[in-house]
Amino acid sequence: MSQSVTEVARAGRWGAIGVLVFWCAWEAVAFFTGKDAVLPGPRVVLWEFQHGFFGDRGLEYLGIRHSDYPVNLAWTLGTAAVAWLIGSALGIVAGLKAARRQWLRDVTEPVLFVFGAVPVLVAAPLFLVWFGAGPLSKLLLVAFYCFVVVGVVAQSAALNIPPTAEEYAATLGLDSKARFRAVVLPAAFPPIVAVLRLALATGISLEVSAELLGSRVGIGRLIAVRAQQGNVAAVLALAITVGLVALVLDLVIRAATRPALRWQG
């Protein structure tokens, strides 16, 4: 316990040093560039964050009903989180099932790899055309991405389990379901947690990108509006806010899954 606290404190200290170095470097580059409109310094971005956090009445004239950060963040992250949950859950089930059934693998692999390789800049407009500019298109896009990525990794994790692990359990009298619970699931869990973290971060970024292309609400929509206004500081403030929230969510996942991964040391 005390060792993990020490490790967290050490990581936190190095993280703080990293942020400080980045802040100073950014401030220096912004100072020497001297153009706030092109590259505002961190203090300008912070000022924009503070003044835009609870909304900008000026944006109401542009038809933005909710310009505050909390509502837009909640919308973006809520949609991304629901899509991540649905897509990842289906991906884990499908990946683990496919690992145990050759025919299912043969059927799904080519389809998943082909559609999984479609660039998001191609897929996102298609989803908008098919399912409209509302939340459904973004939800389906992020869920599909999470399904493919998590499914492929879950399948590969289950396939990489040494055969002796399951054979050993079989000779101890564990039936197929018990072996799945006692061997396959725990053995595949570490890579699945890693891909869940990746899928969440990328899912949020996909959601924001899809909102950039067409949405009535969300951080992506705000970024699009601010970009049209040429307000680089506001765009950076919004982007950094999304990044920080994604970082916090990642820490939450890591903390929640740490007890189940303690065996790895």
Binding site: P162, T164, A165, E167, A169, G173, L174, A178, A182
Partner: peptide, 29 residues
Amino acid sequence: GPDASRGMVFQQDAIPGWLRVRDNVALGS
């Protein structure tokens, strides 16, 4: 097929790494 009446100790390390010693020994049906 394999069953609990014929236990096997393998050449390779086959015990699940995610189970503590006691849980490993108690794994059998």
